[in-house]
Each structure stands twice: as structure tokens, then as C-alpha cells.
Write a protein that binds this DNA or RNA. Structure first.
Lengths: 336, 336
DNA sequence: TTGTATGCGTTATCAG
DNA sequence: CTGATAACGCATACAA
């Protein structure tokens, strides 16, 4: 171990010729310090390279300033975009983000939340998976705020931010019908998360209202490769679909690539495609994909402001938020 | 503020019928506790939902377990892939990642490092920007380890992990020449980071050795759009290049899309392209891009093991590491 | 092996 | 407005 010799408030106090409480006050916004001593302290701190020890401060204040971000598949376009927005907003709000990676293994999210508790995180934002009810209660009981994004859980306490997946899927049918499509398909993964399944259910329901059937194919874990596999299955059918709604842009990219390069299909002439997420690649001219935009900035803002404003001192009941997914028209559907 | 009422070691001790130090020891690997009391403590802790307070532990041990990741453009494919790998490895090593977003503004990295100091991070890993020398010294002086990835700085102290950019660029020329290309071009951004410039310099030098000139175009900040702009400039020249080395895969994607969809060029028949990073999209069949793989896993492993193994108790001189970037052959160059 | 006492760097409380 | 003092929750040196 190295010479851990961080400079403490004590040393700053000595150099500035004041008491250590004066130093503390100088770094506490809204504390009662005369401007004169404040300046003395600040200068001494500057010279010594003093930085307030947030570990100790958190211990005292019962407020660490840490917000834990629990997420799997960080390297995925949509996830990383949301991550960027969240960290950004948190920083602006004076919080700091702690990133915990989860995998699909059992209890992975629970372990992440334990880590959050150990560091006395003021809040945890869960982007993937779903925690066990008991540990959720543990967090809540300890005054740790919880935000579930696109998790569609119904336990009370956490703030739950969701999209209007079901309704959005309905608008896809309208678009496809207007484009003259009649053989509809839905491309999904086997992840089976609530939002994914809501898109599927909404699509099927709306199609049925139009008197149309939907071919559903599911494969893998919502990635590009899965899209290729699904395309393989869908496009080799005797009754080849002329419109595919993909649960995810990543799936759509894989499907489009397979459709074009393996099946020599022209999009949107022979096949219309709509995705979901509006990842950056959706706007690349190789895809030019019509898709739903995840409102990442407003998701992040809602989450962060709720965390910071700590509105309910006694009863910390989060509410459920349903955000709107806007359809971004591009070239993968006829007659936009 | 809510009822912050985390359960403490004291309560666990009472319930288990032991002293509070026994509790502490039960949670300290390698402490001298009888298996009997350890079990008693663990059970009591389980029942109460006790989690060690890492804020307090960090205060005592002078070791927070926090590693600060300083990065801009988190949502970028290469960055997010590296981020995923780093967080993963850190977790395995028993550390936790603190994510600080930087922008291109002045002093952004310095502020991030201050945050790292405030939370007494055991180490900071810098993926973007370059800190001021004074603050670097401050970190080092405080025993905070520093890792610079692809920053190519020469100040002693931090561990510096770099790629063999210059040599790699040389191999590009070989590949292009073998493909029968004669009009070489280099697509770069205006970011001007050392690794980007090394690729440019290495390419030009190797080309000159073959008696070939290089057309260089730079624009924007290393993204897809910048690639499109550069393509515009490059492909409207009277002497149109027949081979382009792009400093980044993102640039390459933009350039390829422009080449194909705006200039109707066939790749690799009329234009050979090589990129750098091997982002996921490079393998998508719309691009099928020959490129250099960033050894993200070994970068992460090198960084993390160095941080954890704390090899030099007194003199914490990091060394410089030069990793190899392997060329991944795909279809964007003739005669792979 | 166990318990007791002390200190880590802060902030909050209370006199002055 | 300022300084002394008591927590915060934990780990460790020391004594038993």
C-alpha cells in the first residue's frame, strides 16, 4: 500500500489559522461563515490541494451523493445512450454515478443492489433485470430511492418509468396497412421482458383489429445476430411477410442485412421494416430505419429530478410514469 | 430526507451475542475468528439485512474500493465496449466503478479527477482527455493510481497503455499495395489525439516508403457524420482515391455509406477501405469492414491487474505498455 | 480467539 | 460568527 496521505481539514485549518469547523463550514453551501474566513480557508485549501472527503461527509450526513446504475449489456447502443444521459444529468445534479454491471445470472441484480447498499448509495436506477422483492424492500426501508426503467414492475415504492409500448405497436400496424402491407410479422428476442412483450401483444392486437394475422418469431437476446436468425426463419416461409416490426433496432439491423444481402430483397419495395429505440445506427444511410425514439433525455431527467427533489419525506411512494415513444419516419417503410 | 436507518454492526453484534469487533472480523477475510462465531454473526447479519458500510470501512482502511472511470462520449461503440470490459474486470477484482463523464471543455478532466479524490478512489482510469500535470501530481501524491489509455502522455507515475498505432498503419499500406491500389487517402478527425495522429503519421511514412503520396482529410470529432463529410471531399476530387484508411471505424462507416449511396461506388472493387477499432458494426454485413481490433479485454486486464496488485509500495512508477492491434480481414479490401 | 478502547475525517450541536 | 465536542460506522492495536 502506498503513502496514503490525503490532506485533511485539520491541516487546512492550521494553515489558515482557523478551527477545523471553520473549514467544514467554508465547504458547506449556506453555512454561516464570514466571507473573510471563507476566503482564508479556500486559499489554504487551494495551496494544499485539499478536497473534502466525501466518504467521511457521507458518513456524517447519511447521504453519500452516490447513485448506483445497475445495467447489463452496457455496450449496446440504446443502453449506452441512456447511460450517457443519466450520468450527465446526475453530474449536473451534484451526484456521482456508480456503475454496476449485471449479467443474466440469477441474483445478479440483487448482488448489485447489495453493493449499492454497502456504499450507502442515495438511490439506485435499474435498467436491466428485476430485483428480488425482499431486497427491494431492504433498499426502501433504508431510505434508498429506487427507479425502474422499462421494467414495468408493479411493486410500490420505486419510481417506475415506462413507455407506451402497447400503443406504439398499434401505430405500427396503421403504418404498415397504409403502405399496403398485408402479411405482417413480428421479430422478437427470447428475453421476454415486459416492454418487449408489450410491443408484441400490442402489435398482434392492433393487427387483429384490422383483420390481419401476425407471424411471430423469437430468437436469442435482442442483438444483431438474433435479427439475422429471425430473418432466416421469416423470409424462407412460403408466404413471405411484406412487413416486419422488430422489437428492437438491433434486431431490425440484422434482419435488414439478411433481407438485402442474403435474400436480395429491396427495402421498402418488397419489405417494410420498423424498429424500436432509434439507436444511432438507425439513422445511418445503410439502414435509414423508421423506428420509435426512446425519449432518453426525458427518461433521465424524470429519474434524476425525482431522486434529487426527494419530495416525500415520510412516505416515499414512487409513482408510475408512462412516456411517449415518438415514431421517427425514415425510408424503411413505403409512403412515409 | 427519509428515515435513514441502515442496520449497523452494533445491532448485529447484539443479536449475535458478540462484541462489535467480532462482527467486523467476521466480514474481514483472513481475520482471526472462530468458525462458530463467524456463523453466528453471518446469520444475524442475514436476518437483519446488514451490509458493511463501505464508506466507514474506506475511511478506516484508507482504501475505498472505488475506481474512477473518466471518459467522454460514453455512447460511442468503442468507448462503451471498453467501459463494459473495465467495469466487468473491476467487479471481479472486488472493486467498484465510478463513472465520470467529461466533455471537451477546458478542465473537464481535472474536475473529474477532483471528484475521484473527493471519494478517495483507489485509482482513476482515464479514457479521454488529458489531465493537468499539477492535478496528476496531486493524485499520485495521494497514493491514487492512475491509468492512461491511449493517451500517450509521457509524464511518469501513471500506467500508460497504448497501441502500436504507427506500425499498424504501416501494415495498411502493405495491404492496399497488395490490392493494387495506388491513390491512397487518409480520413481523420480534427480531434488530434496522439493515437489518431500516430495512425496518420505511420500511414504517410509507410506510403512514402512505397513511393506513394497520401491525401489527408480531417473533419469533425471522429463520428459517423464526419466520415460522410470527409467522403464528400475525398470522392469529388479529380484524382479519386482508390483506397482510404480511416482513423476510426465510425469514420469508415460514414465514408462507406457516402461512397455507396451518394457516389455509387462498389467496395472493394472501386474503393478499398480499412478502419480502426473493430466496433461491432464493422462486422455487420452492410459494412464488412477490414479493421484493426482494439484489444479491449487485454487493455482492461492490464489496467485492472496493475491497479489491484499494487506492486510498488514505495515508488509507484507506472510503466508504459504497448499493445498490439491485430488486423481483422473482412471484405472491404480486395485480395484478403 | 475475544472484547475494549482508540482513531479515521467529517458534520452537527451547543456554548460563547 | 466562531470554536470545542460529540457523534457517524467501522477496523485495529492491545490486553485479556
Amino acid at each position: 500500500m502506498s503513502q496514503r496521505d490525503f490532506v485533511s481539514a485539520e491541516e487546512v485549518a492550521q494553515r489558515a489559522g482557523v478551527s477545523r469547523s471553520a473549514v467544514s463550514r467554508a465547504f458547506t453551501p449556506g453555512a454561516s461563515v464570514s466571507e473573510a474566513t471563507r476566503q482564508k480557508v479556500l486559499r489554504a485549501a487551494e495551496e494544499l490541494g485539499y478536497q473534502v472527503n466525501h466518504l467521511a461527509r457521507g458518513l456524517m450526513r447519511n447521504e453519500s451523493g452516490i447513485v448506483c446504475l445497475i445495467v447489463s449489456d452496457v455496450a449496446t447502443p440504446y443502453r449506452s445512450a441512456l447511460l450517457r444521459e443519466l450520468t450527465q444529468q446526475l453530474q449536473i445534479a451534484g451526484k456521482v454515478a456508480m456503475l454496476v454491471n449485471t449479467d443474466r445470472s440469477d441474483g445478479s441484480v440483487d448482488r448489485a443492489l447489495q453493493q449499492a447498499i454497502r456504499y450507502r448509495a442515495d438511490a439506485s436506477i435499474i435498467l436491466s433485470g428485476l430485483p428480488d422483492k425482499s431486497i427491494t424492500q431492504l433498499c426502501l426501508r433504508n431510505g434508498q430511492r429506487l427507479v425502474l426503467i422499462n421494467r414495468d414492475d408493479d411493486q410500490p415504492g420505486p419510481l417506475r418509468i415506462n413507455l407506451d409500448d402497447h400503443e406504439a405497436a398499434g401505430r405500427v400496424v396503421t403504418a404498415f396497412v397504409r403502405a399496403g402491407c398485408t402479411r405482417l410479422a413480428f421479430a422478437n428476442s427470447e428475453a421476454g421482458t415486459p416492454s418487449l412483450m408489450a410491443r408484441e401483444a400490442g402489435f398482434i392486437a392492433a393487427a387483429k383489429a384490422h383483420g390481419l394475422d401476425v407471424i411471430v418469431e423469437r430468437h436469442g437476446w435482442t442483438g444483431y445476430e438474433a435479427g439475422k436468425v429471425v430473418a432466416q426463419r421469416l423470409l424462407t416461409r412460403r408466404e413471405r411477410p411484406d412487413a416486419v416490426f422488430c422489437a428492437t433496432d438491433l434486431l431490425a439491423c440484422g434482419l435488414m442485412d439478411a433481407a438485402r444481402h442474403q435474400f436480395s430483397l429491396s427495402i421498402p419495395d418488397q419489405l417494410c421494416v420498423i424498429g424500436f429505440d432509434d439507436i444511432e445506427q438507425a439513422s445511418w444511410s445503410s439502414y435509414d430505419l423508421t423506428t420509435f425514439a426512446q425519449p432518453v433525455v426525458s427518461i433521465a431527467r424524470q429519474a434524476v429530478t425525482w431522486l434529487v427533489d426527494s419530495p416525500s419525506p415520510n412516505r416515499l411512494d414512487g409513482h408510475s410514469l408512462k412516456l411517449h415513444a415518438e415514431l421517427v419516419w425514415r425510408g424503411s417503410v413505403r409512403g412515409g
